[in-house]
Design a protein around this nucleic acid. Structure first.
Length: 512
RNA sequence: GGCACUGUAGCUCAGCGGUAGAGCAAGCGGUUCAUACCCGCUCUGUCAGUGGUUCAAAUCCACUCAGUGCCA
């Protein structure tokens, strides 16, 4: 079974921000989960590098577009590295192997008779790379960018999107999960209800792009080009760049996209694929926006969240955990520093980290750092709770309910703390009930071990630290599978490592 | 304006027909094996409002108010 999941291909006009990091973290988490399950996984991310806006951005810095894109792509890759994103493919739409795929695709659509040439005159926003309807303008400015629009006339090539209205409606009806969450699907269906209009897929005035096969004077509209990046990305390193090879590489995929680009993914892209006679994506998930302290982030407000700085201060796992655990994927989410610190301390340091730490301490004092030889009965409450939570966590991941997944895994730690308190193994040892005491320690450590596996997609580094403290070799963790969530995987007699806090409490700076 | 969605404890949210829930925060008590941690107990709620359907409604329907999203 294969599982391919894509992040948006980020537009290479500016350095990455938290808004690009967020969906990438989510996709990384999801694909890590499917890797644990043993799927043949492909995580795809990359940059969208064509279009006038890129050329302009490059010019502003006195760079040629290529150099500019090289720098931006490198920044993204650096961010993915510090965030511990395990991507398989980083596709740049400027990759020499991309153009042949786009052109082949174009030819298929062309052969189908779905592309025609027509004159177009209208008000054009360079930042959107789109024509604007005069009624949508605000004081003659682009409503999105608040910048002047220009009267532009050109002969363009159009894609006959309107032909696919019915086919799309049928596909939506047959696949009730095609777009998630439902609220987003409703929006998409609403667009269809309003009727589809053909859209221009070429630009006469843009040089920085892929030439149109029938008319090399024009370039292919950046979105038409970018969406195909998802296919090019599937090519194996030594594949000939063609559609057949790309499709064989792991199509169809699940797309994770921001709600702002949902139209392109849920309407344009499926229609394009239908026209080319290719299978549609499996699912499209539209996530929400991030705010900071309840406010929209933006340069004008000066409240942008720099993901590099966050990782620098708190570490990759902390950042990953906060955004996955505290924000329902699909809804808008807020970043609040105090909440960030609270959550991490409560969940990772206090509940989970401290549980491991206190138990390892007991093991050192009483068992010479060795995992005792005991059998925990099926009826043991901690064992039962752990097994139940394992099921819940799996279900949560599959539904992309990351907060629920974290919550379920954490429930093991919460329960474990109650369990150890109630049984008080420190007292049992003193009173000479060695067997009972050892059983408690084993059960708790085993529960923590399993919780670490459940959380591995979210906090891979931390989970690894838990495993190594439990005495596992790095190779054992590197080859982790979901099967290791089965109770009893902690080998008796194994010597554990020295107990060091796996996650240090974050200091809450005192507020004036 | 049209079409959606949301409104539940101080905060973030779950529940979506059968006597109001979780986490965090707050208060009280306990414990010291542990990262000043953990455990137990407690607290606040006309489940936005009004009306309706039903033996029964936070849960279904209608309307009202407030907020949000989408409309190439």
């Amino acid at each position: 079974m294969h599982f391919t999941c894509t992040t948006p291909l980020y537009y290479a006009n500016a350095a990455p921000h938290m808004g690009s990091a967020y969906p990438t973290i989510a996709v990384d988490c999801l694909t890590r989960y499917y890797r644990l399950l043993g799927y043949q996984v492909l995580m795809v991310t990359g940059t969208d590098e064509h279009g006038e806006k890129i050329a302009t951005a490059a010019l502003k810095q006195g760079l040629d577009p290529q150099t500019h894109c090289d720098q931006i792509a490198a920044e993204f890759q650096r961010l993915w590295q510090v965030l511990n994103i395990k991507y398989d493919r980083f596709i740049r739409t400027n990759d020499p192997r991309h153009a042949p795929v786009v052109q082949e695709f174009f030819q298929r659509v062309w052969a189908r008779g779905d592309i025609y040439r027509a004159a177009y005159e209208g008000l054009y926003c360079v930042d959107c790379e789109e024509y604007k309807d005069p009624k949508d303008l605000i004081q003659d400015l682009c409503p999105i960018h608040r910048k002047p629009v220009f009267l532009r006339q050109e002969e363009n090539y159009f894609f006959a999107l309107s032909k696919y209205q019915t086919a799309l409606e049928e596909h939506f009806a047959r696949h009730p999960d095609f777009v998630q969450p439902v609220i987003r699907f409703n929006e998409v269906k609403g667009w269809l209800k309003e009727g589809l209009r053909d859209f221009s897929i070429s630009r006469a005035a843009v040089r920085w792009g892929i030439p149109l096969p029938p008319d090399p004077e024009q370039t292919i509209y950046v979105w038409f080009d970018a969406l195909l990046g998802y296919l090019t990305a599937l090519l194996a390193p030594d594949d000939e760049p063609c559609l057949k090879n790309a499709l064989a590489g792991g199509w169809p995929a699940v797309h994770v996209v921001g709600k702002d680009i949902l139209r392109f993914h849920a309407v344009y892209w499926p229609a394009m694929l239908l026209s080319a006679g290719l299978p549609l994506p499996e699912r499209i998930f539209g996530h929400g926006y991030l705010t900071k302290d309840g406010l929209k982030m933006g340069k004008s407000l000066g409240n942008v969240l720099d993901p590099f700085a966050l990782v620098e201060e708190f570490g990759a796992d902390a950042v990953r955990y906060y955004f996955l655990k505290e924000i329902e994927f699909g809804q808008d989410g807020d970043f609040v520093r105090t909440r960030f610190i609270h959550t991490l301390n409560a969940d990772l340091a206090n509940d989970l980290g401290n549980l491991l730490n206190r138990t390892l301490g007991l093991l050192r004092k009483n068992c010479n750092n060795q995992i005792p030889t005991v059998t925990i009965p099926l009826t043991d409450p901690l064992r039962q709770q752990t097994e139940a939570m394992t099921q819940q966590t799996a279900q949560a991941y599959e539904g992309l309910h990351f907060p629920r997944a974290c919550e379920s895994a954490l429930e093991i730690a919460r329960f474990g703390n109650g369990y150890i308190d109630q049984r008080a193994p420190w007292k049992l040892f003193k009173e000479g009930h060695r067997v009972e005491a050892e059983a408690v320690l084993y059960a708790v450590l085993e529960a923590v071990r399993i919780a670490a596996v459940l959380l591995a997609p979210v906090i891979p580094e931390l989970s690894g630290r838990i495993w190594s403290q439990l005495g596992f070799a790095p190779a054992a963790y590197a080859q982790l599978t979901w099967a290791t969530t089965e109770w009893g995987g902690l080998p008796s007699g194994q010597t554990v490592a020295q107990a060091v806090p796996i996650f240090l409490r974050l200091e809450q700076e005192t507020l004036a």
